[in-house]
Design a protein around this nucleic acid. Structure first.
Lengths: 224, 224
DNA sequence: TCATAGATTCACAACACTTTCAAGCAACAC
DNA sequence: GTGTTGCTTGAAAGTGTTGTGAATCTATGA
């Protein structure tokens, strides 16, 4: 499975670094933002699976970030708050946050909450299958882990599928081999860049000319 | 829309009554159970949209209730706990609870949490239906705990049945071995991944080629 | 306590996938 | 053009995963 991204919006860099470390260890890709504006920007461009937002932010505060996210989509949000009053809690939850953690918190607890929220997410998406449309013909179903071309199922190997999902998750973006390796193979993988090429070839072979997978010379690949 | 039911499993009647009052006011139908056994029974028969479960129950405790609910479906669960340790919290969340509240809590907060959980997604109440149709021929009755193939009963062992129910509750979803272990064996189970394979083999053997149970290479299994 | 069914582990064959390799080919720079 | 670099491709070697039967361990009930 392609690595899942989490955006952390937190102005206190020591807290941010701590979360960064623990979330990475739990297998997530972590994107840090120091203020609400940058956070919203990251969320819009990087398509994370979840956002962790501190309420007490400079500029656009956490409540506002929450409100905007709730308007623009259904990204799960975990709120960090220093305030302990019941009123704030309810306000946060009614704003659409999926959960909140009161400072001081343990990073392990945050990771557990994140996992709990994401587990819910899969349940929800089960009902209305999470399908990525690569083209009108090529559909990638990440729940079923299968691909259809014009309605016909095409069997893909594990790595082929994961690679396709990662590319399809970043449509129209030229991805470097390093980015692809980090996301699909994992950052600690040691091996040849060329390995990607072979899997790309398999995808092109199996999915045919319908697949808009371009070679970015000297860089990497781009889907769409 | 028909009134939504919530099952409250709580042995302290003063707390139960308090929750009852507030939840009713919020427009829910409230069903009270004093112990875990009665709670599971109510949940099985009344198809609530959510369960509120106290951890410190007599008989079948809250953890066990949670675990069984997670096996038999994806009913949202809100945990009530008197214990405040981080370990318990994480254990509860990893057991599949969607949220938890620490005593003493305010009933208003509980109502807010309940609403937050329900807002997350359309709750598939049919997931808790007693009979699951795996195919036209294969029917799984979670109340009777039996399986029929073309009307003929097929005896399954406990683990085989629990595994089948979990797979059938997530039709068309590729489930990892870890997900399956967490749900069916419990998060604290220590043992070999491959145990699943053997039970899968038994299911395939007993239910025949009718069973649409696919191996997701390098991942796990998928039913349907 | 023993008998029995069930659960788990083990070992190994069979298989599917992944990676590497080497040669040929295409793009780019000059 | 020509050299250089990077990409494609087919096949082979390497690795890891799954299926299976049997053995072992563990509950359960008579």
């Amino acid at each position: 499975m392609a690595e899942q991204s989490i955006v952390v919006v937190e102005d206190d860099s020591s807290i941010a670094d701590l979360l960064d470390m623990y979330l990475r260890e739990a297998g997530f890709r972590v994107l840090l933002a120091l203020d609400g504006e940058r956070g919203l920007q990251l969320i819009a461009t990087q398509r994370p699976v979840l956002a962790i937002v501190d309420i007490g932010l400079p500029g656009i505060d956490g409540f506002e970030v929450c409100r905007r996210l709730r308007v623009s989509g259904n990204l799960p949000v975990l709120i960090l708050t220093a305030r302990d009053g019941e009123f704030d809690r309810i306000l946060g939850l009614e704003l659409g946050a999926d959960d909140y953690v009161t400072k001081p918190f343990s990073p392990r607890e945050v990771v557990a909450r994140v996992k709990a929220i994401l587990r819910r997410g899969t349940v929800v998406t089960t009902a209305n299958a999470s399908v990525i449309e690569v083209t009108d013909e090529i559909l990638v179903d990440t729940n079923r882990r299968d691909v259809t071309v014009s309605g016909v199922g095409v069997p893909l190997a594990t790595k082929e599928f994961d690679l396709l999902v990662y590319l399809a998750d970043n449509p129209g973006v030229a991805l470097s081999r390093q980015q692809i390796l980090d996301a699909v193979w994992g950052v600690d993988w040691l091996g040849d860049d060329r390995t990607i090429d072979v899997h790309v070839r398999q995808l092109r072979r199996k999915l045919g000319d319908d697949l808009p997978l371009a070679t970015m010379w000297g860089v990497g690949y781009r889907l769409g």
